[in-house]
């Protein structure tokens, strides 16, 4: 059985390391904050200007001046800091943030990512995604393996306008965990109950499959 969005977030949370500053994008990445492993201390950066982002506020305690990059009302943890957008992107471009997790419409076996525009149909804008992917050392893409039409989002080459080139290191989907290196996807883990054959069938890009592919431990 493939994972739902929360399952993907839960698996990504296992990638967190103690003491990291982490930027979570909009959508599935935001859910990662709900699954921080016990005893681990990480601090979330939201590029609109907060370090030490906390959970959603209680009903009635929301503050219009305190939001995350998805424009959702949030709270600040003890020891949080606010800053302007130039300082925020200094943290990002200057590689002070250890991990970036973001969503994508397409990822290529070269590590290219597309997530901001479908020509003639939809334009969301890149927001901070281009700055994030151009600089972060460690980029994980969180997404469904296929789009709503059932077409693979893990491709030889992206067909949509790019957000960044050769930057994605790892992709975690509802079906699998994959690493990108040497211009190929490398299958590391499969979702509980999902077969290697299903993953191969759902992946358009070139993929290296080892003899034994362990199941994700959630």
């Amino acid at each position: 059985m493939s994972l739902d969005k929360n399952g993907i977030a839960q698996r990504i949370a296992q990638e967190l390391r103690d003491g990291w500053y982490v930027n979570l994008g909009i959508g599935i990445p935001t859910l990662v904050a709900n699954f921080i492993p016990e005893g681990l201390e990480v601090e979330f950066q939201s590029e609109n200007g907060i370090l030490g982002m906390g959970p959603f506020p209680f009903e009635g305690e929301e503050d219009a001046d305190l939001i995350n990059a998805g424009k959702q009302t949030i709270t600040a943890m003890k020891g949080a800091a606010y800053f302007d957008s130039a300082t925020s992107f200094a943290m990002i471009r200057g590689q002070h943030v250890q991990l970036t997790v973001l969503g994508a419409m397409e990822v290529s076996q070269n590590g290219d990512i597309a997530n901001w525009k479908i020509p003639g149909k939809m334009v969301k804008g890149m927001g901070g995604a281009m700055d994030l992917v151009a600089s972060a050392e460690n980029i994980i893409v969180a997404m469904m393996h296929a789009n709503k039409a059932g077409v693979s989002k893990l491709l030889k080459d992206c067909s949509l306008p790019l957000t960044g080139v050769a930057c994605v290191k790892k992709v975690i989907t509802n079906l699998a965990v994959m690493e990108i290196k040497d211009h190929k996807f490398h299958l590391l883990e499969r979702a509980p109950g999902v077969t290697v054959e299903e993953i191969i069938a759902a992946t358009e890009g070139e993929m290296v499959v080892p003899d034994h592919v362990p199941e994700m431990q959630l």
């Binding site: 590029e47 130039a86 992107f89 471009r93 890149m126 901070g128 995604a129 281009m130 700055d131 151009a134």
Partner: peptide
């Protein structure tokens, strides 16, 4: 890109005509 937008405004106010960015 958002970071380039912020920095372009900052540069405009700070007397820096242009800058290089990977974004």
């Amino acid at each position: 890109p958002q970071g380039s937008l912020a920095e372009r405004c900052r540069a405009g106010g700070a007397g820096i005509p242009a800058f290089y960015t990977p974004a």
